[in-house]
């Protein structure tokens, strides 16, 4: 049982994390590097001369980008462990877990870990104004927990009262609001910040859907060896 759990979580997390890392390097990193030119002052938004939208960006950096790949794989392995814990818990209660139903689990994971916190605490490009990081982290964890509980209640209960409660859990963090900076002092063009947020969420969704699919697939596959 334990090896089945650990093996499927490691496989699913590593593969989905590797794909997520490569997608981030391809689609998110160029926007991040571009924004850092503004953050570091090499480019000045609304300076004397207009800036090109296509500056020369630093190329592939083996150490920096290699570390990013490793940390993305670790992050998605962490997601996979949590996801498979919930999947096995649900399977014990009659849910069917495989690669196909895993897709839905993946979407739910994306909503829980990326979309719900990102709905109010939008993914931040380097160089934007933000409130104290500790306060934002507390809000992030609380929002993820609330969204996760809400989606579980929607999926696995058949009770109007609990469904209503799940709506409260989904909405409350955003009605209460996330910690905000006292003033806006972002020095990165809004075009870049918007593109960064969109790319981050898009890559997150693709990676999470794959993670759910892989987790369900390996869970079934490893059952044969259990």
């Amino acid at each position: 049982m334990f090896s089945r759990f650990l093996t499927s979580a490691l496989f699913a997390g590593a593969v989905a994390g590797l794909i997520a890392g490569l997608l981030q390097l391809a689609f998110v990193q160029p926007v991040l590097l571009h924004a850092e030119l503004y953050e570091s002052g090499q480019l000045l938004h609304f300076g004397a001369d207009p800036n090109s939208t296509q500056p020369v960006l630093p190329g592939f950096n083996a150490v920096r980008d290699g570390l990013s790949l490793i940390f993305t794989m670790l992050t998605y392995t962490g997601y996979a462990l949590i996801l498979l814990a919930l999947m096995s818990f649900a399977e014990d209660r009659g849910a069917s877990i495989d690669g196909r139903t895993g897709l839905i689990w993946g979407i739910a994971g994306f909503v829980t870990f990326h979309l719900a916190p990102g709905f109010t605490l939008a993914p931040e490009v380097p160089g934007v104004a933000a409130a104290d990081v500790g306060a934002r982290q507390v809000w992030w964890f609380a929002t993820v927990a609330a969204a996760g509980i809400a989606l579980w209640l929607i999926a696995f209960t058949h009770n109007w009262l609990l469904w209503a409660l799940s709506v409260v859990f989904l909405a409350a963090p955003h009605i209460i609001g996330a910690p905000e900076p006292e003033s806006f002092s972002g020095i990165v063009p809004p075009e870049l910040a918007a593109l960064f947020a969109a790319r981050t969420l898009g890559v997150g969704m693709a990676a999470w859907v794959l993670l759910g699919c892989f987790a369900g697939f390996f869970w079934q596959r490893e059952a044969a060896h259990d």
Binding site: M1, F2, F5, L6, A9, F71, L74, T75, T77, G78, Y79, A80, L81, I82, L83, L84, A85, L86, S88, F89, D92, Q137, W140
Partner: peptide
């Protein structure tokens, strides 16, 4: 019970990993 403990251990380990890499 083994399944439940495994799941619990996995969830805690996963949360620890995310805290480490992300927070």
């Amino acid at each position: 019970r083994v399944r439940l403990l495994t799941a619990l251990f996995g969830a805690v380990l996963g949360l620890a990993l995310i805290t480490l890499t992300g927070h």
